[in-house]
Design a protein around this nucleic acid. Structure first.
Lengths: 218, 218
DNA sequence: TAGATTGTTAATCGATTAACAATC
DNA sequence: TAGATTGTTAATCGATTAACAATC
């Protein structure tokens, strides 16, 4: 318990790659494949075989059999590692276009959207992607009674911190933050911030630097 | 020209942090601040001062004056580095909820949304966030005549590769890919893939590993 | 001059990649 | 046995961090 260092988790880059393995493996499973070798797997994913081997080692204990990976078993192992076997009780706050898009997408493993909340009375009672929209006044009660673990924040930035403070007080363990604001939370609570402008920066910088490489020469 | 190695660009992690510097600097500018030191800057961003110093060095040439960073000048330098000074001609394809959310957000620097496209005739003629929705039949002509550089893909995954192939043929230089599919493009074209499930994986893995650290002990 | 600040150089840390032994 | 495959160990590479000199 005392060595709950932030490092014990494993390699973040590998963890972020796991969903792609999962998707690919599910495709193999659909095709009826039972065994997949790291070499063929790596070709499909366009990653190096060694990357595949290393990444898969963090989800399943090394085995002595050296005859490819079991498709179904590896799917299970990844889901277990990510805690996606039993989707966590999740709510979404802020049913704007972005929030709606997430609710309708509906294919996120690992989260179980129990309800969504919005301050606009006009949205009350709507059902988006099979998830009903409730008024903010019901938030505290809902979070407490359903032991909500993850809250997806798709509100305007202004109210993000205030809502976060409430959520944390009521027991939410993690916030998936799609607002433009950085959130402060106590230890033991996680914020996963998705920042689209980071991706855009990467994109435009690459375009520019591949084209005119006319650096400031002075 | 011959050393157009993929490395020449600079450090990707730094580049991805630049938009946050920019946002913070704009706030300073609004407050009338003209100079900001890396120490104070780093406190606001909650990054180490050395990170700030190193990152800022990639956008502006080192100077001998050691008396803080010029707010306005640094804003300009970042925008210049990211090629955000002259927003690039951009279109969005697939005006679903997600596409609409992006169009309405409207605060992306660096891209200039000229139009959006959708295969649904019912959406034709709509204006979303000030951007009109056009039919797919007009795509080729539009891309060619407006010299579109960036295409934002928010279509279903199935048609993503086919549309990409067309776009590339018509001269698009970069694709901001929000579909669930990996895209193949020729050299010289960039794909920036935004994969939300990667973030979700990171989040749930962190929750699990901070709580019960009941690893498979065998 | 003294204090604060940036820029530079070096050290550390972690992720990726390579090489090869162990195993089927 | 031969070929293919994984697991392990080591090497490389890059990013982060630390220490300090140069400068205002």
């Amino acid at each position: 318990m005392s060595d709950t260092s932030p490092k014990r988790l494993g390699k973040i880059p590998s963890i972020r790659r796991l969903p792609r393995y999962l998707k690919c493996l599910e495709e193999y499973d659909r095709q009826g494949r039972e065994i997949i070798s790291s070499t063929e797997f790596s070709k499909d994913l366009k990653w190096l075989p060694i990357v595949v081997k290393k990444d898969l080692q963090i989800v399943s204990p090394p085995t002595k059999k050296r005859t490819g990976y079991d498709v179904k078993g590896t799917i299970k192992a990844i889901e277990r590692f990510l805690a996606w076997e039993n989707p966590m009780p999740t709510i979404l706050i802020g049913v704007g276009h972005f929030g709606m898009a997430l609710l309708r997408y509906g294919k996120f493993k690992g989260v179980d959207f129990l309800a969504s909340f919005d301050s606009d009375p006009a949205k009350e009672g709507l059902s988006v992607g099979g998830v009903s929209v409730l008024p903010m006044s019901g938030l505290e009660g809902f979070v407490r009674t359903h032991a909500v673990e993850i809250a997806v924040l798709t509100t305007p930035g202004d109210c993000a911190q205030a809502i976060t403070d409430d959520l944390v007080r009521w027991g939410v363990k993690a916030i998936w933050n799609f607002t433009s604001k950085r959130l402060s939370v106590p230890d033991g609570v996680f914020v996963q911030r998705e920042d689209l402008s980071a991706g855009l920066a990467e994109l435009t910088a690459k375009i520019k630097h591949i084209q005119g490489v006319e650096e400031t020469s002075l």
